[in-house]
Design a protein around this nucleic acid. Structure first.
Lengths: 205, 205, 205, 205
DNA sequence: TATGAATGAGTGTTCATTCAT
DNA sequence: AATGAATGAACACTCATTCAT
């Protein structure tokens, strides 16, 4: 019985992974259940043993995406170090997460487009981004309190920072020649507050 | 001879505008020709008197979008003033253009998603963004040459700037509570080079 | 007023001729009112000033065909000469008529196919062929009575003769390399009764 | 594993047979996929599990027709007996084949009309008839060589013979009162060369 | 009379989902 | 659980016909 359960879960994940690959390749709208089943190596009908509908596959992919985002956020926010340091960890973590799973990242294009589906939207992306901004704004304020100079309103700053990250990812999704990894340092340099002068003792003394 | 309601050009644009509204509302994938015809107040068949296919409507909407973008770019690049000033005009112009036509902006979500359609993609968005980045990078280098301190590679900086603009717009598209107009000043403060020291008399003297 | 009428009739004939050309080229099923109007050099709507419907154009073309057939039949049957001579004139006349108007002949392919439309069939082709056979059978019997040897039942003979004519035309319609003019002599030699021995003085004496 | 009702091959042939019946009844142009599906007792979509398109159904029907024709031709040509005997077998075989499957024969009306579709024509009927004529011409020449008197050029004779067969069938298709079976003897008597004098003892002696 | 824009019923085809095996 | 044949609702697109000008 136990192995059965494990099998079932594994098979479900295989199908989900296949769906994400197909969504990434063709876009959700053009992805047929047939394609997904073939990619997963199962019969078409079998997809329905693990998922209720084609749309649910997108929902679950969306959840996988938010779960990973939340993990990065939690890790950064809860981690050690000063606020600025944790912000940097967050930026690097988000980009690393997305580049580590490019197919999942590509599904973002569908999730963004699906945001207009209204309440049945595969995920409340608006809420996800709101939390994302709130967490970053909090860190930015903390950083300012810890001595980092903050030029603009923390919440607006957070929105610009989230925007820059997502916008860089967007450019990469649309044009694979854009290298998101190479953009992390510029992002950090341009959009994180400079380290507080007092955070590190001057090593030259 | 007098046209029943409007001349050909006008009628075509009415239908295109209707299509853009419907695409904005439901997303391209869920937009039916019937919806568009109804929104335009014409019969379904009439849409085909002006457009070859549903997909062509998206193509033409995409062209409308790039035309407006190119106009903003040209205006900013060709305008008077120093490089930094023109960059600022560009940033403000892009955001103003998108907020002035929110439905057209919302179609961006479909255009991004459609970038995976391959060669038949409604628009070579990758090329559009490449040009966008190149123009901004050129302005950034010019600004640096004119004395504005530039901390990072101009092309990376351009990508981050384009990303931040698009990313802020993205957040607005997904969550109408985000106000892009309020983000322009932060964008400018955070991502444009500081004005060259010589533009303002040094107050420390 | 009179010239108006003449104009109207002329214009109607022009449109009919255009329709026949288009039917001949594409087949009735694939012939669009647009094509016909363009071929006739008038606007689409104008076709409806002269004909009630697309189908009526086929009806009228069919009538044109039967009128010509009937003329040939009448001419042959009513003409001078012995029965065999008139039969030969009939065979030659039918083939000449069809080859003189190849586009009208090609429409036969549609008329045959349309014979399954039932009562609304563009023409009661079955009746046309029945009359055709009856007239020929009568001539064949007359020829036999006049001394031409007749080996088979006159009505069956007539059916075979009509069949051979139509079948030769059919082969030409399907394959333009078949030359119906070259088949008339063989048709006559093979399927008409030999001339009565008495019609020509035996040269061997 | 056991098929719901029949194996794939069988089901395909059921649908094809249904299509042939519907084509025969209404003509190809007026035959709706719905009609065919209903005639076959399946849902509309199921037709597409076995055929790519409505047009393909006509293609396959056409192939069925040529396959049967070719079989008759081969059987006659390869059979035993003198040339004249084989010719007679061919004529009788063709007519028997067509009357045995009247629905398939009726589709001929569509195939003839479809000959104008050009290269996408469901079948190269011109080629089919060319081969038909060539085979018959060869047999006619052989018969002449074997002593049967031949009055006209063998190829023209073959065209007339093919024409007479097809034309008799045509008359039957258009008017069911025409009985093709009753026309076979007249066809043979009128259009096949008389048996070679040696086959029967000369009664005048 | 002539036009051609407008109409909308009609149809081939697709594909998510179901279900008998 | 797994299959894949079957289903039928949905939809893009066509085109004969109408009608305002």
């Amino acid at each position: 019985m136990k192995p059965r359960r494990a099998d079932r879960r594994t098979r479900r994940e295989e199908i989900l992974a296949a769906a994400i690959r197909v969504f990434a390749r063709r876009g959700y709208a053009a992805s047929r259940i047939d394609d997904i089943a073939q990619e997963a190596g199962v019969a078409k009908g079998s997809v329905y043993l693990y998922f209720d509908s084609r749309e649910q596959l997108l929902h679950v992919a969306a959840e996988a995406f938010t779960a990973r985002s939340a993990a990065v956020l939690a890790e950064a926010a809860a981690g050690r170090g000063g606020a600025r340091e944790r912000l940097e960890r967050l930026v690097r973590g988000v980009v690393a997460m997305l580049t580590a799973e490019p197919d999942l990242a590509r599904v973002l294009l569908d999730l963004w487009a699906a945001s207009r589906w209204g309440p049945q939207s595969p995920l409340d992306l608006a809420a996800t981004y709101r939390e994302y901004r709130a967490a970053i704004a909090a860190l930015l304020e903390e950083a300012t309190a810890q001595g980092c100079p903050g030029a603009v309103d923390a919440h607006a700053h957070a929105t610009v920072l989230v925007g820059a990250i997502e916008g860089c990812v967007l450019q990469w999704l649309i044009d694979p020649e854009v290298d998101p990894a190479a953009l992390v340092d510029p992002l950090v340099r341009l959009l994180l507050p400079e380290p507080a002068p007092t955070t590190r003792p001057d090593p030259s003394r």
